[in-house]
Design a protein around this nucleic acid. Structure first.
Length: 570
DNA sequence: GCCGTTTTCGGCCCGACTGTTTTCAGTCG
């Protein structure tokens, strides 16, 4: 069972409990736990098998038992009972923007509406108007909401949000009264996918900014339009929220609009306990503002070390900040090379020379060419002979001195279905860096894939395991694989895990990275670039590494060449 | 239902916007 399925079940319970209306806080506890599990990034079944469910923030004894039951039997008895009592299809109706538990309750109790279909029917028959608190505008909202659900409200890859954020930012910057502008929210936390873009503006004339904002090019819907806060939807479906705050509150606003909801609740609770009140307007003692102009002052005033945006998920960073034990996160400037790249010798678009020109412009100290190998015929994988030729060519390049960086000889070798590699050992022997990857039979059973990968890791020439879970964000989920067993095997075999920086992969994910670090593994942040432009994807890998709490010591391509090569000499 | 250096009981973040009201409930982030 996947984390998302568990999260959905708990979220459904939260909504049903809220409809039931017996307890005000129980639903909050359930939805908190649901959010927490949805963003775990580590297989919940693995956590459950270790008996560590209660270590998940927001999961206590009672919820751990329910999750265990769900994982073992496929259902939670309390959820089944709630469904009988309130037969509303929460998953369908909850997806409609503007429709929450109270609306669902009203629709169900007065009209017997239980799902999208019956809601649509009731709307068509004009039955909604006249219900308590519902008139034409609300009906219109619901109609539009249903259309959106049918169209599929999607998330966007972080990389795809970048150009949008930049163009909005520069459009708003041109307004006269705008002094500062920042993109906050999950974008600033560098989540791998984002649901909307939150923009914070410091301006004297908020209404003017709002006016310009709702009339931006590409805006198809204005969802809200107030004096300090507005929301719009673009033709691409992406939602943008903008908020204006005065300069004395700007730091507090940045703090508030960057943190995840759980991070914010946690920080505000800490403020409360110190007799303070924290909002986007600042940190207050009574009427007096203690902090607010600068974001860092908020944390400082609460006795916390500054927490980097990528960590603000309430996954232990606040406790670490209290203990002054936050990690010194790896940064892009510390990256000395790229260890997984392709050329037109297999399925890349550019020549070695073209790739090296761009790599050199990044002032890399080393750079590894690692084209596909022969069994991946669709990618024009190289035979042993071709690899040997490439080795000679790279030797020539290195001795030519044309580029300052050291070119490393590598290959992205295929892990065959039986766990063997598709290139003979005597050729692998001559390579500097061997990355082994799974590209085929990805729908095999968990045991089969795990066995296969573990077998490959035993080959003493393997240095790095490429994109360890094989997922493609928003397209294909990770293949079934027991990462814990792979981590253990990799540690014993001295194999490094890849963090593939391609915006669609970002594989390993943040939770996996933290787990890998716990296992004592090292990480290589690689672009897997197939064309020169993709060499710039390194930044996305670094973002992900930071979300995974990685420090330079954890990331082998921050090491100087000598130390790196020592690592690969087994 | 969770959680804890004020607490193992008694709290549980805070504010904007909308649509419906005529002071507020619901939703959202």
């Amino acid at each position: 069972m996947k984390n998302n399925e568990v999260a959905q079940a708990l979220n459904e319970m939260a909504v049903l409990l809220e409809i039931q209306g017996k307890d005000k806080f129980k639903p909050k506890a359930y939805s908190r736990a649901a959010r927490s599990i949805a963003s775990l990034g580590e297989d919940i079944e693995a956590i459950a098998s270790r008996g560590e469910l209660t270590e998940i923030p927001g999961v206590g004894k009672a919820l751990a038992e329910k999750i265990d039951a769900l994982l073992k039997t496929g259902s939670i008895s309390q959820l089944e009972e709630l469904r009988k009592e309130i037969p509303v299809n929460v998953r369908e109706l909850d997806a409609i923007p503007g429709v929450g538990p109270m609306t669902m309750k009203l629709l169900y109790e007065s009209l017997g509406i239980t799902d999208l279909e019956s809601l649509e029917k009731a709307v068509k028959e004009g039955k909604l108007t006249g219900l308590k608190g519902i008139r034409q505008k609300t009906v219109n909202q619901i109609v539009e909401g249903i259309q959106l659900v049918r169209a599929g409200l999607g998330r966007t890859l972080l990389a795809n949000a970048f150009p949008v954020a930049q163009s909005i930012e520069s459009a708003l910057k041109h307004i006269k009264s705008v002094r500062q502008i920042n993109v906050a929210g999950s974008f600033r936390r560098r989540k791998e996918t984002i649901g909307d873009i939150d923009i914070l503006v410091d301006a004297t004339d908020g209404e003017k900014v709002m006016e310009a904002f709702v009339h931006l090019e590409g805006v198809t819907d204005v969802l809200a339009h107030g004096p300090t806060k507005s929301s719009v939807r673009l033709s691409t479906g992406l939602q943008l929220d903008v908020r204006v705050l005065p300069p004395e509150s700007y730091g507090a606003g940045l703090q508030y609009f960057t943190g995840s909801i759980d991070h914010n609740v946690h920080v505000r609770t800490i403020a409360q306990k110190q007799g303070l009140r924290l909002s986007e307007y600042g940190l207050f003692k009574g009427e007096e503002q203690v902090a607010g102009k600068e974001e860092g002052d908020i944390y400082k005033a609460l006795g916390l070390d500054y927490i980097e945006p990528e960590l603000r998920e309430d996954k232990g960073e606040i406790e670490a900040a209290q203990r002054h034990e936050l990690p010194n996160l790896v940064s892009l400037a510390q990256i000395r090379g790229d260890l997984h790249t392709h050329t037109n010798k297999s399925d890349g678009a550019n020549s070695i020379e073209e790739m090296l020109d761009v790599a050199a412009s990044k002032r890399y100290e080393y750079y590894c060419i690692s084209d596909h190998t022969k069994s991946l015929t669709i990618a024009g994988g190289m035979t042993e002979e071709q690899i040997l030729d490439a080795i000679d060519e790279i030797d020539g390049i290195n001795s030519s001195g044309r580029w300052k960086l050291k070119v490393l000889k590598g290959a992205e070798v295929d892990i065959l279905a039986n766990g063997e590699l598709d290139i003979s050992d005597d050729v692998l022997e001559r390579l500097d860096v061997v990355t082994a990857s799974v590209h085929t039979k990805m729908k095999d059973t968990k045991e089969a894939i795990t066995d296969r990968v573990c077998a490959a890791l035993q080959n003493r020439h393997v240095d790095i395991l490429g994109h360890p879970t094989g997922r493609l964000l928003l397209k294909r989920s990770e293949y079934e694989v027991d990462l814990e067993r792979i981590f253990e095997t990799a540690r014993a075999a001295g194999v490094t895990m890849e963090l593939n920086s391609h915006p669609e992969r970002l594989d390993l994910n943040d939770g996996n990275l933290r787990a890998a670090k716990r296992y004592g593994l090292k990480i290589a942040i690689n672009t897997d670039a197939h064309r020169v432009g993709e060499l710039h994807n390194m930044q996305f890998g670094v973002f992900q590494a930071r979300r995974g709490w990685l420090e330079p010591i954890d990331v082998i391509n921050t090491y100087p060449l000598k130390e790196l090569l020592k690592l690969f000499r087994k």
